[in-house]
Simulated scan of single mutants.
Amino acid sequence: MPNEPNNKTEPSSEQDGTFLHTCMYFTTNRLSRAITRLADEAFAMTGLAPAYGYLVRLVIANPGITQKELSEKLYITPSTLTRFIDKLEGKQLVERQVQGKTVLVYPTVKGTAMKETLHEASKKLKAAYEAKLGKELADALTRMQESASELLEQ
């Protein structure tokens, strides 16, 4: 009979969790955790978390960059950026200078001395994910994520 419950039914996607593997939110967070582990390993040599390392790289490349520009380039809120810069100032890697209402960020001598180490950490990270994914997939995935981010932020 069609209306009788079937005791031999397969588990639903809700029960076995397969719906998670077709959900962009879940798969993006899973990917984020995996790449964060690789980044943490690659940047361990710098003594900085990857986000701090990339911030210092931007400041070294753009001495006097405004906090607003840094916030926009790193896609983080101004309050988060302020906390990051506070930590990096405490480590004597960057310094702020106020010009009117604008806050400019400069690398210190100690920060500038990290330039090659930060580049090496970035190269190590890229090599690690390319070794696992292959260069073509890594490049394609990066481009697709960038495009998707742009579209979702509109």
Rank of each mutant, 00 (worst) to 15 (best):
P5R: 15
N6Y: 07
N6F: 13
N7K: 04
K8W: 11
T9V: 13
T9F: 12
T9C: 11
E14R: 09
E14M: 09
Q15S: 10
D16S: 10
G17K: 11
F19D: 10
F19H: 15
F19P: 02
C23Q: 11
M24S: 14
Y25A: 15
Y25V: 10
Y25R: 11
F26M: 05
F26A: 14
T27R: 07
T28C: 05
N29Y: 12
A34P: 01
A34K: 08
T36P: 00
R37F: 01
A39V: 00
A42Y: 04
F43I: 01
M45H: 03
T46R: 06
G47W: 05
L48Q: 07
Y52F: 14
Y52S: 03
Y52N: 05
G53M: 09
Y54A: 04
V56Q: 05
V56Y: 07
R57F: 08
R57S: 14
L58P: 02
I60D: 07
N62M: 06
N62G: 01
G64T: 04
I65N: 02
K68G: 01
K68W: 06
K73T: 09
L74M: 15
Y75N: 06
P78F: 06
T80I: 06
T82R: 09
R83W: 08
R83H: 11
I85C: 02
D86R: 03
E89L: 00
E89W: 03
K91W: 10
K91A: 14
L93R: 03
V94P: 02
V94A: 08
E95N: 02
V98K: 14
G100K: 09
G100D: 11
V103D: 00
L104D: 03
Y106F: 14
P107R: 10
V109A: 12
K110T: 13
G111R: 04
M114K: 13
K115S: 07
K115L: 02
T117E: 08
L118H: 03
H119E: 12
H119T: 10
H119C: 05
E120C: 00
S122M: 07
K123P: 00
K124V: 00
K126R: 09
K126C: 07
A127E: 13
A127R: 07
A128F: 04
A128V: 02
Y129M: 06
A131H: 07
L133C: 04
K135F: 12
D139G: 01
A140Y: 12
L141K: 05
R143F: 13
M144C: 06
Q145S: 10
Q145H: 10
E150W: 08
